[in-house]
Computed example of a mutant assay.
Amino acid sequence: MNNKKLLLASLLLTTSSVFALPQCPQPEFMEQRFSAPNFETGQYKNGLNRLITWLPNYHMIHDEVVAVGKPITITAKFDYGGVVHKDLEFETVKFYIRSQSDTQWQYLTSATTNSDGKATLSLSAMSAGQYRIYAGVLADGTGTEGYLTVVEPNTEAVLFDIDGTLTESDAEQVGDYTEIDYADAKDEAYTLVRSYLDLGYQPIYLTARVYWYGKGTRRWLSWMGLPPGYLRTSLSNEISLFKAAKYKTEQINKLEANGIKIVRAYGNAKTDAEAFIKSGLSASQSFTIGREAGYYGTTAILNNSYSEHIATEVNNFPNANCQ
């Protein structure tokens, strides 16, 4: 091939990459339920863990959104007991991955939990798409599943708080946590989220719930008929109770630094409103419902229902720029 043909080929590749649209999310992949990967259980590395692993587990993987071309770090957290939340220290866990085209889980590597019950997985840069991650405890066979989304620049998303925004009130998270009852949904919350999914927007669930509520939160989203990823919970009670606005602002900034373009955000609390505006979202992009509707200059949704809002603000909203 001569130099002119090489130059032309290079220009074509550059042009196609510049004008290529981000991938649309595929909720059907996020909503699919897969059996856990099969792996043989082994010996306890830390014999004291035998005393806690008979308790209910609250393991979770922190979902990640990462830009194409960037290395990836996944953190899994393992603990037991609905009251004590005792960390699983110094035990082996196995990590698996499953892409949209895989027919089974692919084993990646093993890692050891630290004194905080956390194990990390490092991956090199990956192609755009949605992935499932599984982490299993070798000692007792328990495990947890999370979501990895690798995105191209300007992947458009809509962000949702959960308690008091998609659920009827903040207090109802207790029912999800204890598995006594499902939280009641805010009027037309399902239609709100589904409408944006149908338009091609990436769903983002950003909650100040502590990580051990993650298991119940995924269960609630599934019960609602909503895709359970991407879900981001806080790392401690201190953050949830006293630093929620700062935490949510940082998470929104992190998402946008990784290629996510948040076009709209929904919340109900003062901390939601503060985070939306401080992270750079405009008042017209930031919606709040409930008693604090309109706080911090956000756009108020009245009557504690999304019905009128969907009719006037969502049904005529444009499709996402994705393919």
Rank of each mutant, 00 (worst) to 15 (best):
D198R: 09
A293Q: 05
L138S: 15
P153V: 08
A67C: 02
Y213W: 14
S110K: 13
V150I: 14
R33N: 14
Q173C: 11
V65Q: 03
Y230L: 11
M30Q: 15
S99E: 10
K70T: 07
G146S: 05
R33K: 11
Q100E: 12
A183R: 07
P37R: 03
S240I: 01
A320C: 01
A36S: 13
S282L: 10
R33M: 11
P153I: 08
S115F: 10
Y147K: 08
D116F: 12
E40G: 11
Q32N: 11
R264S: 04
E152W: 05
S17A: 15
A311R: 10
L13A: 15
S279E: 07
N3L: 12
N46Q: 10
K246M: 04
T103R: 09
I239L: 08
E40S: 13
L192G: 02
T120D: 13
S35Q: 15
Y96N: 08
Q43C: 07
K45P: 11
Y306V: 05
D272Y: 03
T120S: 15
D187S: 09
K94F: 08
H62E: 13
A67D: 04
Y205G: 02
D102Y: 01
K261E: 12
F39D: 14
F90T: 10
Q23D: 15
A293G: 05
M30V: 08
T167I: 04
H59W: 06
